[in-house]
Amino acid sequence: MEVKIGVRSVHRELVVETELTAQQVEEEIRNALAVDRGGVFSITDVKGRRVLVPVASLGFIEIGEDEARPVGFGGTL
């Protein structure tokens, strides 16, 4: 699952590839937003690295869809 995070006053978005489902990512976001202004949104990527963003700095979060990626050189769809 690909998650794009827009941070205020930063021109590039953060892109994190995670093993979480869309529902799990949304739950993490909601939990971080539920804490008064001191909340932190955190997510772990597929390599085990953790990204932490203060909730006050979040601009947007785009959650990609779970999709099966085609494997191989087959011409069938």
Results as ranks from 00 to 15, higher is better:
Glu13Pro: 01
Glu19Pro: 03
His11Met: 12
Phe60Asp: 01
Glu28Val: 05
Thr76Asn: 11
Asp66Lys: 09
His11Lys: 15
Ile63Met: 08
Phe41Ala: 00
Phe60Cys: 04
Asp45Gln: 07
Val25His: 06
Val3His: 01
Gly75Pro: 00
Pro70Ile: 10
Arg69Pro: 05
Ala22Trp: 02
Gly39Cys: 09
Glu26Ser: 12
Leu14Tyr: 00
Val53Lys: 00
Thr18Phe: 03
Glu19Gln: 09
Val40Gln: 01
Ser42Cys: 08
Ile63Lys: 07
Gly74Trp: 04
Leu58Gln: 00
Ser57Gly: 03
Thr44Ser: 09
Leu14Cys: 07
Gly75Leu: 11
Met1Arg: 10
Arg30Leu: 05
Val46Phe: 04
Val15Arg: 14
Glu27Cys: 06
Gly6Lys: 08
Gln24Ile: 04
Arg49Ile: 06
Arg37Ile: 09
Pro70Trp: 06
Gly64His: 04
Val35Asp: 08
Glu2Lys: 15
Val15Ile: 10
Arg50Leu: 09
Val15Tyr: 04
Lys4Pro: 00
Val46Ala: 11
Leu52Thr: 11
Val15Gln: 11
Phe73Tyr: 10
Arg49Gln: 15
Val25Tyr: 05
Thr18His: 01
Ile61Glu: 03
Arg69Gln: 12
Glu65Phe: 08
Ala68Arg: 15
Arg8Gln: 12
Ala32Leu: 03
Ala34Thr: 06
Leu52Gly: 02
Ile63Asn: 03
Glu67Lys: 15
Val16Cys: 09
Gly59Tyr: 13
Glu2Met: 10
Glu27Ala: 11
Asp66Pro: 10
Phe73Arg: 15
Val40Arg: 02
Phe73Met: 11
Glu19Lys: 12
Glu2Phe: 11
Leu52His: 09
Asp66Tyr: 12
Leu52Arg: 15
Glu13Phe: 04
Arg49Asp: 12
Val55Gln: 05
